[in-house]
Simulated scan of single mutants.
Amino acid sequence: MFHKEITDTQLWNAVRANDQQSFNKLFDKYWVSVYKTSYKYLRDKEGSQEIVHDIFLSIWNRRHELVIDSFPAFLLTAARYQIYSRKKLKRFTFDSTSELAADPYTTSNDADIRIRQTELNNNLQLTLRGLPNRCQEIFRMSRFECLSNDEIAMHLGISKRTVENQLTMALRHIRSHMKDIAEH
């Protein structure tokens, strides 16, 4: 008797129907590649393990709302996002004791810069809310997840030209609103 191998799509459909065994099979099949991708960029075993855990936990928790056409592509995108987020977080980690001891004047400038960055980020988030949902999603994937226009198009199942048009619309909207904020 021949044994037919179950496809990722079949496993994913079973996961969406709350099948823990199918989820375990997908995890077993892909955790090593997600770990290796993460480790390649982070060079941190514990951080890479956390990324694998976070991604698969998120997949399980969001299994009813996620639409995954290609499991490897989805995992690569998710890993890239996690890696980018962790690298960004590392860059902005603030060790107050060493910086305070080093130079109290620099610390006050750093605090001022952080406050301004927070205000700018809050204004950007408010401005983004004025865009259509799809446009917001495309902008976030481009600017926050660092995906290329081709990757966004493939992930969302739309044309590259649509992605470009949506980004142009988002940037115009942001420029006009941020200009208004800067004038006040």
Rank of each mutant, 00 (worst) to 15 (best):
Q117E: 14
H64V: 05
R116C: 06
Y81G: 10
W31Q: 12
D69C: 04
T93M: 10
V32Y: 04
F27T: 03
L57T: 15
E50Q: 13
K36G: 02
R43V: 02
L89Y: 14
L66R: 04
L128A: 07
R114Q: 13
I83W: 03
D69S: 08
I68A: 01
A102L: 13
Y30T: 03
E151T: 01
R62F: 02
K160A: 03
Q125D: 15
F144W: 12
F144I: 06
I158V: 14
K90T: 12
T93E: 13
E164C: 01
A182P: 00
M1P: 05
R161M: 06
P132V: 03
S70F: 00
S70V: 03
A14S: 13
A101M: 14
T9S: 11
V32R: 12
S38C: 09
K40Q: 11
T77K: 11
R63I: 02
L156W: 01
I6V: 15
Q82S: 15
T93C: 07
L128V: 06
S148Y: 02
R114E: 09
T7W: 04
R91S: 14
S33M: 11
L120M: 10
R114K: 15
L26R: 01
R140M: 08
I115T: 10
L26K: 02
S38A: 15
S38N: 03
H53M: 09
Q21F: 05
Y39R: 08
R16T: 07
R134K: 14
L26H: 03
S48I: 03
D8S: 06
L167F: 05
F139E: 00
